[in-house]
Design a binder for these strands. Sequence first.
DNA 1: ACAAAAGTGTTTAATTTACACCCATGT
DNA 2: ACATGGGTGTAAATTAAACACTTTTGT
Lengths: 252, 252
Amino acid sequence: MQKGKQAEIRFNPNVSVDCVIFGFDGERLKVLLIDRGQEINGKDSEEKIYVLPGNLIREDENLNDAAERVLDELTGLSDIFLEQFGSFGAPDRLTKEHDLAWLKSIRAEPEARVITVAYYSLIRADQYEIHASGFAKEAFWYDIDDMPKLGFDHQDIIEQALTQLKFKSKYQPLGFELLPEKFTLGQLQKLYEAILKTELDKRNFRRKILKMSFLVPLKEKQQGVPHKPARYYTFDHDMYHRYKSNDFYFTL
Amino acid sequence: MQKGKQAEIRFNPNVSVDCVIFGFDGERLKVLLIDRGQEINGKDSEEKIYVLPGNLIREDENLNDAAERVLDELTGLSDIFLEQFGSFGAPDRLTKEHDLAWLKSIRAEPEARVITVAYYSLIRADQYEIHASGFAKEAFWYDIDDMPKLGFDHQDIIEQALTQLKFKSKYQPLGFELLPEKFTLGQLQKLYEAILKTELDKRNFRRKILKMSFLVPLKEKQQGVPHKPARYYTFDHDMYHRYKSNDFYFTL
DNA sequence: ACAAAAGTGTTTAATTTACACCCATGT
DNA sequence: ACATGGGTGTAAATTAAACACTTTTGT
């Protein structure tokens, strides 16, 4: 991420990154979408088109850096662990008129064939502040089961991200890189339930998840809740990686 | 642009595909590499550089098609199920002199920043014929534990492909899309052992693998082997996919 | 006092592991 | 006849699944 020599920044016209940021609010799984600020029917129709935060990569930056930069530029989110999960780029990706129209308004080569490298992450929706900027007019969390019309092939990209998230969460302890600092076991269970769309037995869940040695209980407990306050846990990165490299698997 | 044939074929200068083809010969795991036909020290030194089969994509083809085409063009392999597993493209990917020298000999824009989308597959090394063509002077199987010097970041790409293969084989029944038509359970076990680098108990392996309903025994048996001939099995694609979608997991 | 989620064990069923011998064939 | 890998079952240990009540807090 170098700034300064403004005139020097060149973008690669053929490669972009897109970020699928899943957010969990304690109840439901959401995705972060941006309103690209395009009036679709001339008048101020309600038909807006939403897209994933994404943009072209710079010629001098690697893919991961590009993903982090673009996410930051459009939504203000930084220091988020992003995991690459696939690349998309059918030549007929640009089939919708409004997509082309929009590209003409922001790109030097709007008709260039673009391959996008997709990343995803999972964060606590309420622990980060979103600030739309750049061409993002607004940025919102959308419930995964109730999404608006999306530009390009972003619907497809999100679906694949979800598949990946489900798969990973089933066979690995939910990429804890993707999780917030501290959490209660109830929250963690709800998260799993939201991702896997099943109900889990509380006692069995706790036993299994605690058997993995990288969950560490904190002294801190919930406050101000109208029920028995739950203990917070955090997780030990070192332990986690040792565990991970040791060919582990687990199942819920 | 590159080929004299038709003036119409245009390549995207910034995006390529690379194929990591794993081959199993009944004993060991190999990778298919091509000799790009470059004399490295002027004289006929033994220091050749090998690369994965890969090349730029066309402007009008999607990524999967590009991978299939490029693989076919360079090695003669077709009808092989390829699975995308990642994209690579550090801006400093082009650090080796000989890589640049070679690109200058075959590309219109040899210095362009290239992002490559990587695919892998696994086949029976002895059931396909390899015919090097295009810029591939030769194509060989190399033992996974005894590989020559590789161009670009191909060493890294292969390592990640192997990790992916290991991971998948552990949690899914080894992408049977990637397997040959018919096989004995002994061969299948050896394959798993080669990938996972462990020994497996024969009886337990058979029980577990047969419990999955998509392995179907054939009437055919081995012939001409100096021991009790083994039964051949094949696998039922439909069953496999039904199984797969049903949230299954399994472990060896 | 009540509503709401936290926290905690045991019994039963299913799965995994370890382990050894006979069989069919080619040389 | 012998060398080679194919093919088979069982008992013991581990892991998964089902299940209900008491605790702590805010209102």
